[in-house]
Design a protein around this nucleic acid. Structure first.
Lengths: 339, 339
DNA sequence: CTGAAAGCGCTAACAG
DNA sequence: CTGTTAGCGCTTTCAG
C-alpha cells in the first residue's frame, strides 16, 4: 500500500539530497545538475511523488487555475466553447474551475467571491454580465478577467466576441438581396451586448437600403420564449423572413413554423440564425446562420488572459472576430449571391 | 486601491485579536465568542478579507474541489449533467475542476495525475473508462472516485448509471408489441458498459419473445458513424424498426432516414433512442427514447462521493436508476400500450 | 474562549 | 549548483 501522500522531503531523504533540491527539479525554471535531477527523479518515481499543486500555489502565488463562469449550457454553443477553452488551457498548463452562475440576481457576486477564494490566476466570464463593482473587485484582487461572447462599455475590461454588428448587417443584406419584403427579428435577452449588436447591425443593414423592420418580438435566448415570439409574430401580417438572434432560438422557431403553423421553410418564410452551432448543420434544421468563429474566439481569449497573467500591465483589449454567413437551406439564396 | 491580498493576520491586527481567532471565526466548526466574532467580522468586511481557500486546503487536507473528467461535450446529455453536477456540488460547498480527456490512449493517465496534483477531494469520471491501475492510483492517494454513466466490474469502484439492461429490454418489448418484424440495432462504442448493457437488455427482450436481431451495425456514439451505420443497414433488406444506443446517434439516424433515404418515421420505420436528451423532445425529432434520470443520477453521484469523502470506509456502491420509456412520434405506439 | 506556537508542502532568497 | 533558512496563509494543538 503506497503512502497516502508523498512529500518532497521524503523524496529528498531517499535521494540523499536536500528538500529544496527536489523542489528545484520539479520547478519549471529549475537549475539542478543532471546528476541530482536523475537521483531525484528516480526516488520520486519509486515513491510515486508528485508535487502538491496547492502548496505550490500558496507560496508562489500562482495557482494555474482559471475560473470559468458560465450561465447555462443548454445552448450548444457553450459546451462547445467550454470544451475548447478547457483544452486550450490544459495545453498551456492551466486548469478550469467551473462556476455555474444562475440568473438569480446577486448570485453572480457570490460566485465571483468564491472564485476569488480559490486564488485563480484569471477569470473567463462567458455570457454573463459583470457589474463594474465586480470587475473592480477582481482588479483589486489582481485577478485579470476577460469576457467571452459579451462585451461591456467599461474600457478597462477585455472582451472577445464575434463582430456581431457586421454579422447582423450581413444578414440584412442577404435577406434584402433575396427579395424579402416583410422582415422580422426575434431578439435575445436585451441585456446582452450580443443581442443589442446583432440587432443594431441588422437594423443598420436594413436602413442602408431604406428599409425597416416589419415585426419584432423578444425571445430572451430561450427556446420556449422564442416559440411564443414566433407565434405572436405570425398572429397577423406574417413576415416572409425572420432573423433570429441565435441558433438556439432559431431551432425552436423553425419547429414552431413548420409543425405548429404548417409553414414551409424557406418557401413561405426564410430563417436565419446566429452562432452556427453544430445542430444548425443537422439536416432537420439546415439553418442558415452567421458563424461565430469559436476556435479563434477561444484562442484569443486564452491569449489575452494569459498575457495579462504574465504581465499585469497589458492593456485591456476588445477583440471582435469576423464570422461568415453560412448558407444552408433555411433561407432563400439570392440569385448569383456571393458573400 | 485595495490591498491585493488581505490576510487573516491583517484582520487580526485591526480587530485587536490573534490571528487564530480570525481563523476560528471563519472556520465552520468554530468556537468564538459572539463578541470576538463580531469584531473580526467587522474588520474583515472593512478590509475585504476572505479566507484563502488554497492555504486552507494545504493545512486541512481538504480542498473542497472535485475533479470531473469528461470525454466530450457534444452529446447534449453531458453538458446537461455537468451543469447539474456543478450546481449540486456548489450547493454543498464544493467546486468542480474540469478535465477534458481526449480519447488518445494514455491521455487519461496524464489527466488523472494532474487531477491528483490539485488535491481534489474526489473524482467523478463521466463516460470514461478507468483502468484498474488508475483507480488503484486514486485509492492510494486516498481520493474517492465514482463513475458516472459507466460501470466496471471492479467491485471496489462506485458507479452510477441508469438501469441500461432494463431500459434495453423495455425498448424490445415496446417494439415487439408494436408488431415490428425486422428489428435493427445501432450500437454505441463497444467498450462502453452502457452500450453493452443496453444491447444485452434489448437482445434479452427479443429473445424472451423468441425473436432475434434482424440487423446490427456500430455507430460508436458518433453522429457521422451512426449515419454510415444506418446507410449500411438499409443497403439491403431494410428493418422496420431500429433501436439506437443513444439519442445523439439516433438524431443522425433520423436525419439520414428521412433526408437521405426518403423514408417516413414512423410509417416506414420506427426509431427509438436512449437518454432523452432535450433535443429528443424537439418537434423536428420527436424521438421516443428511454429517459436517463439525470437529476437522480446526479444526486446519487454526489451523495456517494461526498459520503466517501466524509467517511473513507464507506463501501463502494453501484447504483442503477430506472428510467421510463418516453413515448413520442418516432415510433409506432402499440394499440392500448401502457408502460 | 483565547493567544502562542507549530506546522501543512512547497518555493525562493541567501550564502557557500 | 546546492543546502540552509525563511516564509506563504492558514488550521490546529496546547496552555492558560
Amino acid at each position: 500500500m503506497a503512502q497516502t501522500k508523498v512529500t518532497s522531503a521524503q523524496v529528498a531523504e531517499r535521494a540523499g539530497v536536500s528538500q529544496s533540491a527536489v523542489s528545484r527539479v520539479f520547478t519549471p525554471g529549475a537549475s539542478a545538475s543532471p546528476k541530482t535531477a536523475a537521483k531525484v527523479r528516480k526516488a520520486a518515481n519509486e515513491l510515486g511523488y508528485r508535487p502538491n499543486a496547492l502548496a505550490r500555489a500558496v507560496v508562489s502565488g500562482k495557482s494555474r487555475m482559471i475560473g470559468l463562469v458560465v450561465a447555462y449550457l443548454e445552448n450548444q454553443f457553450y459546451p462547445d466553447v467550454l470544451e475548447k477553452l478547457s483544452n486550450a488551457l490544459q495545453e498551456r498548463g492551466y486548469h478550469v474551475l467551473v462556476f455555474m452562475a444562475s440568473q438569480q440576481a446577486g448570485n453572480i457576486e457570490t460566485v465571483v467571491e468564491e472564485i476569488l477564494d480559490y486564488q485563480v490566476d484569471g477569470i473567463i466570464a462567458a455570457s454573463v454580465a459583470m457589474s463594474s463593482d465586480l470587475s473592480a473587485r477582481c482588479r483589486a484582487a489582481g485577478v485579470p478577467m476577460v469576457l467571452f461572447n459579451r462585451s461591456q462599455d467599461d474600457p478597462s475590461m477585455s472582451a472577445v466576441t464575434s463582430d456581431n454588428i457586421a454579422g447582423g448587417r450581413k444578414v440584412a443584406e442577404f435577406l434584402l438581396a433575396g427579395g424579402h419584403q416583410k422582415i422580422g427579428y426575434i431578439a435575445g435577452w436585451e441585456g446582452a451586448s450580443t443581442q443589442r449588436d446583432r440587432e443594431a447591425g441588422f437594423l443598420q443593414g436594413l436602413a442602408q437600403a431604406g428599409r425597416a423592420l416589419h415585426a419584432r418580438e423578444v425571445g430572451n435566448f430561450r427556446m420556449d420564449e422564442a416559440r411564443d415570439a414566433a407565434l405572436r409574430m405570425f398572429a397577423q401580417d406574417p413576415p416572409d423572413a425572420i432573423f433570429v438572434a441565435n441558433d438556439h432560438m432559431a431551432m425552436a422557431v423553425a419547429d414552431c413554423l413548420r409543425f405548429e403553423l404548417g409553414l414551409n421553410i424557406p418557401q413561405d418564410v426564410s430563417l436565419v440564425g446566429y452562432d452556427d452551432v453544430p445542430a444548425a448543420a443537422w439536416p432537420a434544421y439546415d439553418l442558415t446562420s452567421v458563424r461565430q468563429p469559436a476556435n479563434r474566439m477561444v484562442a484569443q481569449t486564452v491569449d489575452i488572459l494569459l498575457g495579462k497573467i504574465e504581465d499585469a500591465d497589458t492593456a485591456p483589449r476588445k477583440v471582435e472576430l469576423d464570422g461568415p454567413l453560412i448558407l444552408r437551406g433555411s433561407a432563400r439564396v439570392p440569385e448569383g449571391w456571393t458573400q
